[in-house]
Computed example of a mutant assay.
Amino acid sequence: MKKAIFLSIFILILSCATNPFTGKKTLAFVPNSQLFPTAFAQYDQFLSENSVEKGTSRAEMIKRVGERIAVAAERWLDANGQQGYLKDYKWEYNLVVDETVNAWCMPGGKIVFYTGILDVAQNETAVAAIMGHEVSHALANHGQQRMSAGMLQQLGAVGGNILIKDDQSRAAFNQYYGVGSTVLGVLPFSRKHENEADKIGIYLMAIARYNPDEAAELWKRMGARSSGQAPPEFLSTHPSSETRVKNLQEEAARAKEEARKFGVTSYRPLGKF
């Protein structure tokens, strides 16, 4: 058992990557060389099963904003000694006809916006805030980390069931482990990723010449739309709208300062649609 524990610790140490935006070590049990091709295949399958809006001004806007955010990301990474970091990313931006208020980015840079989120965005700058957030999930390898954390959670469950011999105690462990590891581990881990993506995203949108002040305004609209429907923050995968607005308002000035390093001193019009 001791050998197994030491071996597990050794594997954990080897299975870490460095987040270029935070400088912190992160879990990376599944390498991107395996993760990206799987994500790309799943993305293609999703597109084949859904209605993709093509050739419209809205669809072109999604692509335009995505390309600008991707360029901003590459400029930031190159300026911070991370040349070549994006070599395996295959950026793609699609607008899917669906009233769901959501957008997402798969590992490796495959992005979907649902048409339903455009009603809340209201302008191109807000779309840039959403795009920056979603792109940041991919850049910071949050999908890779979530998979790794899930594997670690399962490993803990298996270990507990092996070590606990008494049936009654094992049943109690299984009952409380699932809830405890989720509330105390998985959910805070997810909220941390959302906060990271907000912070990275607001920097990227500013470097792409979109006014970062609009990010907080977007989340005010999001909060008004979901008022009374969201669970308490500690039981959610996402920070509350109030938390996000406060954090984004505080980060906006720093994002503008960072953008000035790249020669950005003015921003594009909101681009209402």
Rank of each mutant, 00 (worst) to 15 (best):
T26C: 10
P212S: 09
I9Q: 07
Q145V: 09
E251M: 12
L14Y: 10
A41Y: 10
A208E: 01
A171W: 09
A59F: 00
L139K: 00
K272S: 14
A216Q: 02
G185W: 01
A215M: 03
A206Q: 02
G109T: 06
E251Q: 13
G143P: 02
L163S: 13
E134D: 08
Q82Y: 09
W76L: 08
H238I: 07
M205A: 10
A224N: 14
A259V: 08
H137S: 03
A73S: 08
D78P: 05
A126K: 02
V65Q: 00
H137Y: 00
T243N: 10
I207S: 04
K24L: 12
R68T: 11
L95M: 07
Y89E: 07
M222S: 05
R68W: 02
Y267N: 07
L187W: 01
N32C: 10
F10Y: 09
M1A: 14
F40S: 12
A72V: 06
Y203P: 07
N174Q: 14
P107C: 03
Q82I: 10
N80M: 06
E251Y: 14
A28Q: 13
V158S: 08
K110R: 13
Q229I: 14
D88F: 07
T115Q: 03
R260Q: 15
E233D: 08
R58G: 08
L184Q: 09
Y85F: 12
L27A: 09
G271E: 03
F36E: 07
W76T: 10
K54H: 09
Q175V: 13
A39H: 01
D88H: 13
A72R: 00
A73K: 01
K220D: 14
K110E: 08
H137K: 01
S181Y: 04
F234C: 11
A17S: 15
R146W: 04
M222K: 02
V135D: 00
G180L: 05
G143C: 03
F113Y: 08
G185R: 02
P107V: 03
Y210M: 05
F173V: 13
V179M: 14
Q45P: 06
Y43W: 04
Q153T: 14
D198C: 06
S241T: 11
G178M: 13
K199L: 13
M61Q: 09
G201I: 03
V112W: 00
A216C: 09
K2M: 14
P231M: 05
Y93I: 11
R75P: 04
R260Y: 05
E124G: 04
N19Y: 03
L187G: 06
P31M: 07
M205W: 02
N94G: 11
